[in-house]
Simulated assay, not measured.
Amino acid sequence: MQILDGKKLSQKIKEQIKSEVAELKEKYAITPGLAVILVGDDPASHTYVKMKAKACKEVGFYSIVHEMPESITQEKIEETIKLMNQNPNIDGILVQLPLPSHIDATRILELIEPAKDVDGFHPYNFGRLIQGLDTFAPCTPLGVMELLREYNINPKGLDVCVVGASNIVGKPMAALLLNAFATVDICHIYTKDLQSHTKRADMVVVGVGKAGLITADMVKDGAIVIDIGINKVDGKIVGDVDFEEVSKKASYITPVPGGVGPMTIAMLLQNTLKAAKKRIQS
């Protein structure tokens, strides 16, 4: 069994990005810029945004966080996004989810200029992803693909079971794997007999937010197991996979924390750098 070390790989990617940012500044006097919109007081959201701001600083990006109260109106958020769309120094715009229930999140995400949609949630970018065209792919699934590449795991021809069908993780994950010529099986809350799907898979990718969902009897010997879940149990961060038991059967497995999580932020930086490079070309 080999651990897929996302923490180590994310550091390597950040070093590469830092070097490219220095080159951009020297050659073109351009500093990649990321704007984050943070609404409300959700502790997890605040933690994620702090981590993203810290990562931006590490690689030399310009970043700004627009903190807004829970009671903010739809119009005010839309106003801010429009300003960011027009700001030539901002290459990427990120809206930290979830948003309060009175805000139409779909409308907010669709308002972001596709060329600045570094989270890859805009229908335009999602459509291009489905078609296998160059685009901004959502950061977590993209991070999984980078991890597989780093460890020379080629999804081509593999039977892959993706557990979870969210727009942020499950659906784009399935699309990226399909584009890599894997045979993809997508499971969700209404799937009958989940074990019958996971048990025959060469690779299981899970991201639903249910601690210990995938147990050892649900995976075959030698399976590759990618755990995207993040849960808090008795003060500890754990994934959706029973790591201790499943790791005894898996050929490769991601830990939680230290697996896919750090890769998500690394891919956000990579997407923002990509957007900044496109600014030079335009």
Rank of each mutant, 00 (worst) to 15 (best):
Q270M: 13
Q281R: 13
R149N: 15
M51V: 04
I13Q: 02
T80Q: 12
A115Q: 13
L213G: 09
E113S: 14
F126Q: 15
K14F: 04
K50Q: 12
K116M: 02
M145N: 09
N167A: 10
D240R: 08
V184H: 11
K171E: 01
G157Q: 08
I224G: 02
C161W: 01
S45N: 12
H122I: 02
G212E: 05
D119F: 06
G143H: 09
F243W: 05
I81H: 09
A44R: 12
D159G: 03
V256G: 08
M267C: 15
P43G: 03
K82C: 03
N179Y: 07
R128L: 14
T47C: 05
E245K: 14
D91S: 13
P155L: 02
V95L: 14
V65A: 09
L269R: 01
F121L: 15
A174F: 03
D240E: 11
P98N: 01
N154V: 12
M173E: 12
C139P: 07
G143T: 08
I30L: 15
E15S: 13
M84V: 00
C161V: 11
A29R: 15
A44M: 13
A266H: 07
E58H: 09
D119R: 03
I90Y: 02
G235I: 10
E110S: 10
K25C: 02
E146D: 13
L24H: 08
I265C: 04
Q2D: 12
K50V: 03
K232S: 13
I77K: 09
V162K: 08
F61H: 12
E150M: 03
I81W: 04
A55M: 10
K236R: 15
E15T: 04
V144F: 07
L176Q: 15
P172H: 06
V21S: 06
V246Y: 02
Q195T: 15
T47L: 14
G127P: 07
L34E: 04
D185C: 15
H66V: 00
N87P: 00
A35Y: 01
A250K: 06
D117I: 01
V219K: 07
V256H: 06
K248Q: 14
K232I: 14
E58F: 05
